[in-house]
Amino acid sequence: MKLRPEQLAGQLNKGLSPVYLVCGDELLITQECCDTIRQHCREQGIHEREVLNVERGFDWGQLIDAGQSMSLFAERKLIELRLGGSKMDQKSSATLQEYLQLSDGSNILLV
């Protein structure tokens, strides 16, 4: 579901989705949306966060590992996949689809 930034808080109050894709031309607005999602996750008891920065030579298997690895301190975690200037290709797209198929919805993915 596509949302405008002013709609995000209302949607989050209805419950967390397993995946969020935040994109846009205005860097400040995208950062504020990500901050809003992070804050809502904390309010829902999701205190662990794993950040994956996609850079040249990134191993996409790290995303699968992050989604499948058990946390020592929490039942759920927020996984942030930061694409930066990277573009999605066939391998990254296939890995993202695999992550979604394997996911039980307990973790939250923020792209």
Rank of each mutant, 00 (worst) to 15 (best):
L3Q: 10
P5R: 12
P5T: 08
P5I: 05
E6I: 04
E6F: 06
Q7H: 12
A9T: 11
A9I: 06
A9Q: 13
G15P: 08
P18C: 01
V19D: 04
V22L: 10
G24Y: 13
G24N: 10
D25S: 10
E26M: 01
E26V: 08
L27A: 11
I29L: 14
T30Q: 09
E32S: 08
T36V: 12
I37H: 10
R42C: 07
E43W: 04
E43P: 04
E43I: 00
E43H: 09
H47R: 12
E48Y: 01
R49D: 00
R49P: 00
E50V: 02
E50H: 03
E50Y: 03
E50L: 12
V51N: 01
L52M: 06
L52G: 07
N53G: 02
E55G: 14
E55Y: 12
R56N: 15
G57F: 13
F58I: 07
D59C: 04
G61D: 11
Q62T: 01
A66T: 02
A66S: 14
Q68G: 14
S71M: 11
S71R: 13
L72V: 14
L72P: 13
F73H: 10
A74G: 15
E75R: 07
R76D: 13
K77E: 04
K77L: 06
L81S: 00
G85P: 04
S86H: 14
K87W: 02
K87V: 02
Q90A: 15
K91G: 02
K91S: 07
S92M: 05
A94R: 02
L96D: 14
Q97R: 12
Y99C: 09
L100E: 12
L100D: 08
L102A: 03
L102F: 07
L102T: 00
L102K: 11
D104R: 01
D104A: 04
G105K: 03
G105N: 10
N107M: 02
I108N: 03
L109C: 00
V111M: 09
